[in-house]
């Protein structure tokens, strides 16, 4: 592939079937400007690679102690102690860990290399209406890299979806719209004040980018994480419905019920989560949320 533009990703997931139509491959880019308290992918937040430690997998073999140039690993009283201070994130411990307790999350890759991996499943995209999805993190946090991926995808006639939290410069989204078939656009909170409280940022730019994207003629699916106790409110459901109804380009609203999988991942990278709900949302509860949004819009509302 001809693009030498490179970026940091933390996964390429083949047979990804919930991020856009058909069978897709999702490329997960690292880095996100928001700080959602319930983050489902906490390992995606930092822009650079980082080390995860899954204590329960550790075989206490002490291989990492000898491999670490910064002496971050130590066996003390029969236990493995990993100190993050001083860790240069070189990944040597992860490479030498046979038990899979240490892992390096994130790697640098060129857009061409990533698309070559994506193209391996081309035959399945063409028979299912699928293609490439960019996710993250916030894919446009690495704007130039994300645009290079989308441009290459379009050159190869791949259907392309881009997930975004919207907290990125309008100019990036405008350029992305050229190569993107469907935007999976997150709306996490419709109240400005609560948005700031839950994500650390205001939602003004996010909503205005959404309006601009819509005016630009983009196809949009609204993706709405619903977190018990935080945004499972009538006024939020009503506002989501109204927003979806008002924007011509919005084809569907996806309700994304909170799940607690982020907690263990957050613990593994040493960045505990603020929101600590431990249960899966029941199907009946999420269906009820969807119905509440449906009351305020004629667009379809789905639970994903």
């Amino acid at each position: 592939m001809e693009s030498g533009e490179s970026g940091v990703i933390f996964d390429i997931q083949r047979f990804s079937i919930h991020d856009g139509p058909g069978i897709r491959t999702t490329v997960f880019l690292k880095g996100c400007p928001l700080g959602c308290v319930w983050c489902h992918n906490p390992e995606s937040k930092a822009g650079e690679p980082e080390i995860a430690y899954y204590a329960e997998k550790c075989a206490l073999c002490a291989a990492c102690v000898g491999l670490c140039p910064s002496r971050c690993h130590e066996m003390a009283g029969g236990a493995h102690v990993f100190r993050r201070e001083g860790c240069a994130r070189c990944g040597r411990c992860a490479q030498g860990c046979h038990a899979g307790a240490m892992a390096l999350i994130g790697r640098e890759i060129t857009a061409g290399e990533a698309i070559a991996e994506v193209l391996k499943d081309e035959v399945f995209y063409s028979h299912s209406g699928g293609g490439l999805t960019l996710s993250g993190g916030e894919p446009f946090f690495q704007g130039a890299f994300a645009l290079a991926l989308l441009r290459l995808a379009k050159e190869r006639n791949l259907h392309a979806c881009a997930e975004t939290c919207g907290a990125v410069p309008w100019e990036t989204l405008r350029r992305a719209a050229e190569f993107t078939d469907i935007f999976l656009y997150d709306v996490k909170e419709t109240s400005a004040e609560r948005h700031r409280a839950c994500t650390g940022a205001a939602n003004g730019a996010i909503l205005s980018n959404l309006e601009k994207l819509d005016a630009h003629g983009a196809r949009i699916v609204l993706r709405c994480p619903i977190v018990p106790g935080l945004n499972d409110r009538e006024d939020h459901f009503a506002a989501l419905g109204a927003l979806a109804g008002r924007l011509r380009g919005v084809e569907r609203v996806d309700i994304e019920p909170y799940h607690p999988l982020g907690l263990s991942k957050a613990a593994a990278i040493g960045k505990p989560q603020l929101y600590e709900g431990r249960s899966l949302t029941g199907k009946d509860v999420s269906a009820e949320w969807a119905r509440k949004v449906e009351r305020h819009t004629d667009k379809p509302v789905a639970v994903s």
Partner: peptide
């Protein structure tokens, strides 16, 4: 859950036609 509904048809159809195409 992955093969439910219209979306499930897309997935199954894509796997079958893709594999048989190859």
């Amino acid at each position: 859950g992955d093969v439910e509904g219209q979306k499930g048809d897309e997935i199954l159809g894509g796997l079958i036609r893709g594999y048989f195409g190859r």
